[in-house]
Design a protein around this nucleic acid. Sequence first.
RNA 1: GUGAUUGUAGCUCAGUCGGUUAGAGCGCUAGAUUGUGGAUCUAGAGGUCGUGGGUUCGAGCCCCAUCUUUCACCCCA
Length: 459
Amino acid sequence: MAKPSIPKGTRDFSPGELKKRNYIFNTIKEVYERFGYQQIETPSMELLSTLMGKYGEEGDRLIFKILKRGEKLNSALSLSGDLEKNSETKLSEEALRYDLTVPFARYVVMHQNEITFPFKRYQIQPVWRADRPQKGRYREFYQCDADVIGSNSLLNEIELIQMIAEVFGNLRVPVCIKLNNRKLLEGIAEVIGERDKMIDITIAIDKLDKIGLDQVNAELLERGLSASAIAALQPFLHLKGNFAEKMNVLKASMQQSEIGKKGIEEIEFIFNQLDSLDFSKMHASAGIELELDLSLARGLNYYTGAILEVKAKEVEFGSICGGGRYDDLTGIFGLKNVSGVGISFGVDRIYDVMEQSGKSFETAKEKPRVMIVNFGGEEMTMCQKYTHQLRNAGIRAEYYPDASKLKKQLDYADKNEIKYVIFAGSEEIANGRVKVKTMNSDQAEQHLSIEEFIHQIHP
RNA sequence: GUGAUUGUAGCUCAGUCGGUUAGAGCGCUAGAUUGUGGAUCUAGAGGUCGUGGGUUCGAGCCCCAUCUUUCACCCCA
């Protein structure tokens, strides 16, 4: 007998887990709504052409392609040689969505005539990646995106950062919000004379606290940077201190780079504005910090301005939230000059972080449940009527479906955290009063009419 | 894609140097208790030791392959 299984990197969610997950979803959703974002959904699958080339070479490889079926598959097979390089894209024309940002860009272009810009949307849906699963990495997971599209204002960046602080404050998860700017990174590459090596530089810098300075420099050399460029980079690698101190170093060394100066201007505006809003003071008690982190690279190649990433302080985990500004994502789909900025929470990782650091999940105060014992026979019709009455009064009520032994029925009530068990046998029905047992309490059994009972627990 | 790692009852795991009939706890079913759950006691069901080959008189244990689990790198939520 083959045991059933599920695809790797996917999970079942049992009632207990789902309650906790929903607590996180609801927290995020509440903040999004409160900040004026509107929900949309897009299909689980997109055309492969919509997704390909948007996430870099690595990303393309991780897209779950959907095999063509039937006649189309047969003709594709006969046309493409087995070893042909592009055979994957020839055998597939659809794919599961890889993230929510690119489908959103596609949505904006397709619905541009109905949308009033700036458009603030949020979207909470699963995405799929053909990755090797490991700690904190799944092949199916949820993203919770909020984006503003059609506005260049840096006030959007500020609002998104405030939303991040709200969400993690409400969840009571201390985090560090790391902020950087793509223009700053480009500026650095420019002033050290290796403008086209910007990606290599940021990937190497990203590893600074993992592999150390010497290794980083070795890797830079390996990636083809000149010795003089590496020497010129050192001040940036040694960047330390508070925001103002970092800023002074950057300003001093960025005189020759227009794009670098622009990056400094943007990041300074965001920090200063948040400062005058007392952002740090407001969220300090929740353990939420904001810092400028030059080592933050973020692989997605469509970011052009601010980039941000959030890490939990209590547990070592990948980033649990990320985002940034993309100036021309819709341009690929034919709508020019529309800038967007957004963030994305990774619910699955937030859940893992909360579990591992022993956080309490404030599951919603649930209404008490009521179960009516099933004695079988004629009484059951009356019991169904009682159940109907209870449900109409907004009470979570059910009857046990089988006339099983009482032990079994009460055991069910116990395991399911049902608070009240109602006995309505022939005697009770005859005198119009049911017997109510309150589980997990010393309270004596009560004899009440069903109306009195409803009034008692739901006045 | 690279390198490790795991698999024995529904679940968590023992299983000695390769040796006779593969164990425990939890869970499940039933009873002790005829219309009252949780605690206790008793009994019972439940296994092709991931799968397929091989070595051996003999394999849960050794070898090969394959699938699976988990982890690191890469990348990322």
